[in-house]
Each structure stands twice: as structure tokens, then as C-alpha cells.
């Protein structure tokens, strides 16, 4: 709640909190880790930033936060040009970059206090209280006084999230926030992100958990080999995935033959199913045809592919990291 004499909060809903134009990073040695990326993250969105290992997500996030200089292109954060305006902008941005990093010889609480003291806009009078609240939110209250050296991986990850939560932020930039968390922790972080988003914070998060994206993200972008291959709402991404007709049957060959006969395309046969794109034909026609062909049907219906399939379709099947 704001007191009457205070100016109203900045109209965060207007300008997109993150805009990049032609953002490119070429590392020494010539590798182009990020290649002319044009990102636009809408205000109030929960934005999933996806891509295989080595596709340039962390490198992009580092450039967003002014940690590394772009080879070319520009970054605007909360309407201000980075890295020029970083001292002005970054206090409003909570960040978690590439895994948790702390002073191992200090307690979790002492670590939070130091990072907060580094921000000259942070009020020292409320520092301890804010640290306690942040620790509470990530479920670390009981380990607040323990040296970080003695923290488990998941506890460190939680502490890293707590750093981002030390103040009310307009934007959170989180690099794989659920990395190393247990199922409860993952769920907590998911709820936390929802809660923050409903308070008006824009959340930009890289992740490999596509189920997470389906559950919490409103928007998503997909990186592949340094290039941004897709950027849209999650609903659009999903809508583009055509539902597939799946027939569960022991008579695989016969079923496939029948579906093909009616014009189904992209047929795939697994151990127990035949599936394919049913085209524009209503599926009851397929059911009738299968019954007429004496195919034993154990299961029948349209299935919507998961985001994972969309992801693989965009970034390729290969397991080897791109070089």
C-alpha cells in the first residue's frame, strides 16, 4: 500500500521491460554465442527463455544485466539503455545469473546483507527485516545463520532467489531458478513466480523444464545456436501444434493402412499405437473405417502434443551441443 503523499508507482505496464535490438556477442576465438537477437518482453508477462545447452541463454542474460558488453546491438531495460543506465535501472531488477555464487565463509543472512549493502538505494534500516522476509519466502529461515559452505545445492539456489527478492522489483531476470531444487522447492518457486507476477513484476526466466513453462509462463522465446528462433505467447505456441490422431491397437499394420487410405499424413507406428495427422476429416470417419476394417481398437482419440515436441521441432533432435 502506498501513502498518499508518495508519487504513484511508475507506469510499468506501458513500455516493454526488456527490449534488445540485433544483440550479438562474439567471444574471443570467434564463436558467436548470441546472434542478432531481437527480444521484446511485454510488461507483466512471465517470459520463458528456452533453448538447448549452449544456445546462448546465459550469455544473453549477462548482456541484459551489463555484466558483459555486446559485440553489437543494444539492450533496453525498463526503458533505459544498458549498460549506461545500470546504476539507475538495476536496483529495480532482481537477478540470478548462472547458478548461485556466495561467500562460503559467511552465513546465508550475512551474504544477503552484503549484496543489499552494495545497492546504495537500499535502505539500511530495513535491511535485516527484508533479509529475514526473503529467507522466509524461499524457506531458508531455519538455515539463515548457517555458513553457506554447509548449504546443499538446492539451499544455495534458494538463497540466490532470496537475493533477487530482497526488494520489491519491477523485473526479475532468473537464469534457471529451479536448477537443483527438490519437487517441493520447484513448486514453491513456481508459486512464487506466479505471486510476483500477480503483483505486477515482470519475470524473465530461462529454464529447461518445459512443463514449468506450460504451467507458469505467458510468453516464451526459443534460442537455438545463438539465434532466436521463436518468440510468442505460450498459447500461440501450443495452438500451432496440430493435435494428432492416436489409435491404440494390436493390429498395427492394418490400422496404418486404413488411416493412410483416408488421407492421414505423417504416420508413425510405435509398439502399441499408430498416430498421424488426421487432416480436415472428422475423426469419427476414421473410427468407422477402422471398425469396418476389423481393426481391434483399444484406444482412440486426438492428442495435443506437449510443448516439448514444439521445442524439439524448433531446435532439432540432436543431443550433441552445438559448437
Amino acid at each position: 500500500m502506498t501513502t498518499p503523499q508518495e508519487p504513484p508507482p511508475p507506469a510499468a505496464s506501458a513500455a516493454p521491460p526488456i527490449v534488445t535490438r540485433g544483440l550479438t556477442k562474439r567471444f574471443r576465438g570467434g564463436q558467436v554465442a548470441v546472434d542478432t537477437v531481437d527480444l521484446e518482453v511485454p510488461a507483466g508477462s512471465v517470459f520463458g527463455f528456452l533453448g538447448p545447452n549452449g544456445s546462448g541463454k546465459t550469455t544473453t542474460i549477462r548482456m541484459l544485466l551489463g555484466l558483459i558488453a555486446p559485440t553489437s546491438g543494444s539492450v533496453e531495460l525498463l526503458g533505459e539503455s544498458m549498460p549506461k543506465a545500470q546504476l539507475k535501472v538495476l536496483p529495480r531488477v532482481g537477478a540470478l545469473v548462472e547458478g548461485p555464487a556466495f561467500y562460503p565463509f559467511w552465513s546465508g543472512q550475512a551474504n544477503l546483507l552484503r549484496f543489499d549493502a552494495a545497492d546504495r538505494t537500499a535502505d539500511p534500516r530495513t535491511r535485516k527485516a527484508r533479509a529475514a522476509e526473503a529467507l522466509e519466502r524461499v524457506g531458508l529461515s531455519n538455515a539463515a545463520g548457517k555458513k553457506v559452505r554447509a548449504y546443499s545445492l538446492g539451499m544455495r539456489q534458494r538463497l540466490a532467489i532470496a537475493v533477487a527478492l530482497m526488494q520489491r522489483r519491477d523485473l526479475l531476470v532468473l537464469d534457471e531458478p529451479t536448477n537443483g531444487l527438490d519437487p517441493q522447492g520447484t513448486r514453491e518457486v513456481r508459486n512464487l513466480i506466479r505471486e510476483l507476477a500477480s503483483d505486477g513484476t515482470t519475470v524473465f526466466t530461462s529454464t529447461h523444464l518445459l512443463a514449468e513453462v506450460e504451467q507458469v509462463c505467458t510468453h516464451a522465446a526459443v534460442m537455438s545456436r545463438g539465434k532466436l528462433v521463436r518468440q510468442s505467447t505460450v498459447a500461440d505456441l501450443r495452438a500451432e501444434l496440430r493435435p494428432r490422431l492416436v489409435v491404440r491397437t494390436p493390429d498395427l499394420a492394418q490400422a496404418a493402412e486404413t488411416l493412410k487410405g483416408l488421407g492421414a499424413t505423417d504416420l508413425k507406428t510405435t509398439e502399441e499405437t499408430v498416430e498421424g495427422d488426421s487432416g480436415d476429416l472428422p475423426i469419427d470417419k476414421f473410427a468407422a473405417a477402422l471398425v469396418a476394417a476389423d481393426v481391434r481398437i483399444h484406444g482412440f482419440g486426438l492428442e495435443r502434443p506437449s510443448l516439448e515436441e514444439a521445442f524439439v521441432a524448433l531446435t532439432g533432435e540432436g543431443f550433441d551441443v552445438a559448437e
Binding site: L65, Q86, L90, A95, A101, D116, D119
Partner: peptide, 12 residues
């Protein structure tokens, strides 16, 4: 330690 990047994003 990696704390340099956290300090810089604080921002120090």
C-alpha cells in the same frame, strides 16, 4: 567465487 557478478547486478 562468482560473487563479483552478484555485486555488480546489485548494483555496486
Amino acid at each position: 567465487l562468482g560473487t563479483l557478478r552478484t555485486m555488480l547486478t546489485a548494483p555496486a
